[in-house]
Amino acid sequence: MSDNNPARHLSDAAEGIRTFNHVSGAVGQDWTYPGHAYSAVGNLSYLVGMLEQAVQQSTRPVMYTYEHGRVRIDNGGDADAKVAELVAARRDAEAAAAALTSAVQRMHNAVSPMGLDTTGIPEFEDDGDDE
């Protein structure tokens, strides 16, 4: 697929999410503190905020072909019925994407004021030499 193929970019985004899921499964050096979650949830918020538009635009080739009377359904199926099914499912997906966006934005707002309490952690204690 060329760089101008929209489906390729969705494939790349899916691969990025798969990689995130793989590397974020356990706490590690770069995945320990609330600030790490703030950054991740912020990026996730940005990503899901674009899903509704991506859902809408993902059906454009079908709609374009349908509007020109050129959609054919395997085994002689009814194009009008299948396109109506697609449009109804797209509306459901758009609503779900909007709800997901709202929920992830609330997550980002909730994690925003969080930080690490360094009390009693030796590597964060002030050694008193600054006084």
Rank of each mutant, 00 (worst) to 15 (best):
P61T: 10
N75A: 13
A54T: 14
T59P: 00
P34Y: 04
G35W: 07
F20Q: 07
E131N: 09
D92K: 04
A7D: 10
D130F: 03
H108I: 00
H36E: 10
D117S: 01
Y64K: 10
G128F: 02
V71C: 03
G42S: 14
P6R: 01
P61S: 10
D80A: 14
S112H: 08
A14N: 06
H68W: 03
E85S: 12
H108Y: 05
A79G: 04
D126P: 02
V23E: 15
A26H: 05
M114Y: 10
E52Q: 15
A37Q: 06
A95F: 03
S24I: 09
P6V: 00
Y46L: 12
G28A: 10
Q56W: 02
G25P: 03
T118R: 04
E15G: 05
D30A: 07
D78A: 07
N43K: 11
P122W: 01
E67A: 09
R72L: 14
G128K: 10
D30L: 04
A88S: 12
R70T: 09
D126R: 10
R18F: 05
V62R: 05
V41I: 15
H68F: 06
D117Y: 00
G42T: 14
Y66N: 14
N43A: 15
F20I: 06
A79F: 01
A98R: 08
G77A: 08
R8G: 08
G16H: 06
D80M: 07
V48C: 07
M50Y: 08
A79Q: 08
S58A: 15
E123W: 05
S45E: 08
D126Q: 12
I121Y: 02
R70Y: 07
P122H: 01
G120F: 00
R72N: 15
A79N: 06
I17H: 11
H68R: 14
T19C: 09
A84S: 15
V55L: 03
D12Y: 05
S45F: 01
A93N: 04
A99N: 11
M107E: 03
I17C: 13
G69M: 11
V41K: 03
Y38V: 07
G35H: 13
A79R: 01
D126S: 11
I121L: 14
